[in-house]
Amino acid sequence: MNARAIDLNSDLGEGFGRWTLGDDQEMLGIVTSANVACGFHAGDPRAIRSTVTGAADAGVAIGAHVGYRDLAGFGRRNIDVASDDLVADVIYQIGALQALAAAEGTSVSYVKPHGALYNTIVHDERQAADVVEAVRLVDPTLVLLGMPGSAVLRLATEAGIPTAIEAFADRAYTPQGTLVSRREPGAVLHDVDEVAKRMVRLATDGLLEAIDGSMLELRADSICVHGDSPGATDMAKQVRLALTEAGVELRPFAAAAAATTSTTARS
């Protein structure tokens, strides 16, 4: 497989009140897409708006980073939410971000679930269907970003919603292609150079080494570089540099994914 285009995304807008998390402004100079918190797992309106403004100024695509209503747990606790509540919660979060984006003369182009919700809808058909339904009701042209082989991406495709596949730069993978739980040793990768090499191989060869040394085949549209871990911007810079030196073009995935779905629908 030859080098190709790929997107870099990061979770941003997660400050709350006097509490800050990560360096959004620096990260916006590195990534091509910003997963902006919508107030349920993190982010207050002022912080969210500031991130949206920065993304618009930097020409970075904006995505709604929707999650469970769980500020105390940062959206990383599993919650058995009733379908009526989950659909409404996701609609509410997307709508809030859309309003803030519109006020800054920009728009939301995709949706990426956060934390426990992201992991739950890999396998949970009901909650996956709820997220898909919420996106469909708000705007079925929004791209849904998620894990390869997940229930939510399959259901989104069946509903005619454009999808994109994501890989994580700093997370270890199981041989089955899922993320190693953060509760397990080795789940988060810290060697900047090694992470960069892994992402170049992913972008150019479609291969990713699992935690046991086996090789996974994965063609990702976007790479997530987390913005809240120590040394996050340094890692993101190194990943970007390594990709560009390998001849990989960096560009937002959302427009391409939406265009592909539109072409398929017309054929």
Rank of each mutant, 00 (worst) to 15 (best):
A37W: 01
P230T: 05
A116G: 07
L142Y: 10
K197T: 12
D44F: 00
G247W: 13
R183S: 15
T141I: 06
N2W: 07
A210W: 08
D24M: 01
I48Y: 01
A58L: 12
R154D: 04
A187F: 11
A134Q: 06
D124V: 04
E166H: 12
E133Y: 10
T178L: 13
L208K: 09
A64E: 04
Y92V: 00
I223R: 04
T264F: 14
D228P: 10
G206L: 08
W19Y: 14
Q98F: 02
G95T: 03
A99F: 00
R240Q: 05
G17F: 03
P230M: 03
D23F: 01
L207W: 12
S107G: 03
M1W: 03
E194P: 02
E14C: 04
D24V: 02
A58G: 08
P175E: 10
M215V: 15
I91H: 08
E166Q: 14
A258F: 13
K112Q: 00
A96M: 05
N2T: 10
A169D: 02
D24T: 09
A88R: 14
A167W: 09
A102L: 08
G227I: 04
D80P: 07
S107F: 07
S181R: 14
A58F: 11
E125S: 12
Y110C: 04
C38E: 03
A164H: 11
Y118H: 11
G115F: 05
A159E: 04
L137V: 10
P185I: 13
R171L: 07
G54S: 07
R251A: 15
A255C: 00
D11A: 08
A172Q: 08
D205R: 15
T260W: 15
Q238M: 13
E125W: 08
A82Y: 10
C224N: 05
P162T: 01
G67H: 02
G213M: 07
L243F: 06
V192T: 14
T233L: 00
F40S: 05
G67E: 01
A196H: 09
T264C: 01
S214F: 11
A101T: 06
P175D: 09
L216D: 09
V90I: 15
D193G: 15
L243M: 05
A203G: 09
A246W: 07
I6F: 06
R154K: 11
A187D: 05
V87R: 14
R240E: 02
F168N: 05
A37Y: 02
A96I: 03
V108M: 01
N119S: 13
M199L: 06
G54V: 03
R154N: 04
A151G: 03
A58V: 11
G160M: 05
A5E: 09
S107A: 12
V152Q: 06
R198A: 07
R201W: 07
H123S: 14
D228L: 12
A156H: 09
